[in-house]
Design a protein around this nucleic acid. Structure first.
Lengths: 340, 340
DNA sequence: TTGAAAGCGCTAACAG
DNA sequence: CTGTTAGCGCTTTCAA
């Protein structure tokens, strides 16, 4: 057998990265080292240690550790029909540090159950997803946002476990955000409500649900129809939106803090006083929202709490069932500012 | 043989996700369908079609397409010793939010050469990296920023191709950013320069190189020592930093646009006029920097251009050698604003 | 120009 | 209690 090291280092030249003592022990190596058979190694290491004499199991554990043994995903996948990888789709929204926290938390939880998390850009062509799924045979594909129809079709075709938030949940969730924005504005005495979308719809996947939430609360309180506007992330667009608000005294629920900040800048440019002439509530609690003068009133979405629920349902679907957490955690927090 | 569908759908119940006509053709299926042997299928599909009669090859292509055949990564990995996956480490920083574009571009380029890109959170424990690498046997692990010593050690141990920017390049690159900031400030007539770090060093991996770039240019122009300060992303911190600037007329190169925006807010709070009393140049050209009043002068980093260079060197290291692009593309662009 | 055979590392059924 | 055996899907000689 041509060892991997040799194969990779023809002529012994090689580059620095590959020199030194490489470790890629197989279960055969572990078995030999422990003086047992491969199947014993496999069983001990896969949770059936109690079928063996304690000393035998101990020898196996020790040998595996000593040799730095990690099972080959390829061999295991081939045998089992699916791998221990879980693919998570990376939404095409801002990587505001928070998203990393989500995946970091998920990565750890999954690792505890023997799964390995890998990420994939959500925007990429569906054909790539197909290749990835067909090739890697992941235990599951998970998405923070609902799959597109194309994605669903591919995943179904490949027979892979596909987990996304039921779109009804997703809608409820975002409607709750709009509702909280509206309720907050109303509690502060505003009666003329508006909703400002982010114009680039690729980055505004939740806008309509949130708008609905605002509208619903407005209706419940007997307020008139809400104004709806689109704001691109440039001053011209924001100024146009502000000019279009029928009169002073409008209170705007913004799709996110960036939109809110754009409106604040536009208001300043137009000489409007915030919140007297224009009130604004954002969403996301970005770092910059804390720096704005006046500080933006916004809503924080506790993504780690939310992701814990997501991870739990994922694990359950995988049959690695951690029991569902008793209640859905509170994930929305109002952050006080001076813009309403 | 127990088919995968049956195995996954015991009792025929199953859930919606797995019903319907699943497609998971193997090379055996393709061979049978085309009336040739498995090895013929393998050879034709791996670029040796010219060893066969044209009709034979055509039959193979047609059958593979019809059956939706995708080779099993597991089988291939087992046989070849390494997979077609390339793991990219997701840095724990924000590059103006355009990080997706980088990975999307990379994903496409790699796919053209038969590789599949998967991402992994860079922050996670090194042990997880070890498992990932040992299990998945990726063709390469790539990082936009230099590996930590721990990461390097793990990758070396597993004998995997590890590509990161030579730290000298990384340093040069970031020094160039600082230099451009300083040169721009000096061209506008400023003689008292400062550099403002982002206090959270986890998000400021390049700060020192940039600071060096500023200092270097200041020295070349015979200016005095530059002031260096740390700014956290809150108003108190920014106000403290502004207060500490010895006198009006300081021009600050900020680590990024967020830091710059914090300084602008602090200046406003202190009644300083920008740029007369305090000049600021940022870095990243975030959306919000375009919305600020006054608009922030900043530098845009063309991450897609940069990533094309990165992808090229990665492919070269993989031996899928696209020829190196002739010259390094220009990746830094000054964005005019009104803050200097 | 094509096919047969071997084997990558692993696990599960079965035999002792 | 532990080992033998077969085979997951693929590629690569080697032989025809």
């Amino acid at each position: 057998m041509l060892s991997r090291v040799k194969a990779r280092n023809p002529g012994g030249l090689g580059n620095v990265e590959r020199e030194g003592s490489e470790v890629n022990a197989t279960s055969t190596d572990v078995a030999r080292h422990a003086g047992v058979s491969r199947s014993t190694v496999s069983q001990v290491l896969n949770g059936y240690a109690d079928r063996f004499a304690p000393e035998t199991a101990a020898k196996v554990y020790a040998s595996a550790a000593e040799l730095g043994y990690e099972p080959s995903a390829a061999g295991r996948t081939l045998r089992r029909g699916s791998s221990d990888f879980v693919v998570a789709l990376l939404p095409h929204t801002t990587f505001g540090g928070h998203l990393q926290d989500l995946f970091e938390q998920m990565s750890v939880s999954l690792a505890e159950h023997g799964y390995t998390l890998v990420l994939r850009i959500a925007g990429a062509a569906t054909a790539t997803l197909d290749r990835l799924v067909a090739g890697m045979k992941p235990a599951a594909v998970w998405s923070f946002t609902p799959f597109t129809d194309d994605e669903r079709a591919v995943l179904d075709r490949r027979g892979v476990l596909a987990i996304d938030p039921p779109s009804v949940t997703q809608v409820d969730h975002n409607r709750a955000i709009g509702q909280l924005q509206a309720r907050t504005l109303i509690e502060h005495g505003y009666r003329r409500l508006a909703f400002a979308h982010l114009q680039d719809e690729r980055h505004d996947p939740f806008g309509f649900a949130r708008e609905d939430g605002v509208r619903e609360i407005a209706r419940q309180h007997g307020l008139g129809a809400i104004q709806v506007t689109n704001v691109a992330l440039d001053l011209d667009s924001a100024v146009r939106a502000v000019d279009a608000f029928s009169a002073p005294g409008v209170a705007v629920a913004a799709y996110n803090d960036d939109v809110a900040m754009a409106l604040l800048s536009a208001a300043r440019l137009r000489g409007l006083e915030v919140p007297r002439d224009l009130a604004v509530i954002g969403m996301d609690r970005t770092d910059l929202s804390r720096i704005a003068v006046p500080r933006l009133t916004t809503i924080e979405y506790d993504i780690v709490a939310a992701s814990e629920a997501g991870t739990a349902s994922l694990l359950q679907a995988l049959g690695a069932g951690a029991p569902r957490p008793a209640a859905a955690p509170a994930v929305l927090h109002l952050i006080e500012g001076e813009t309403i």
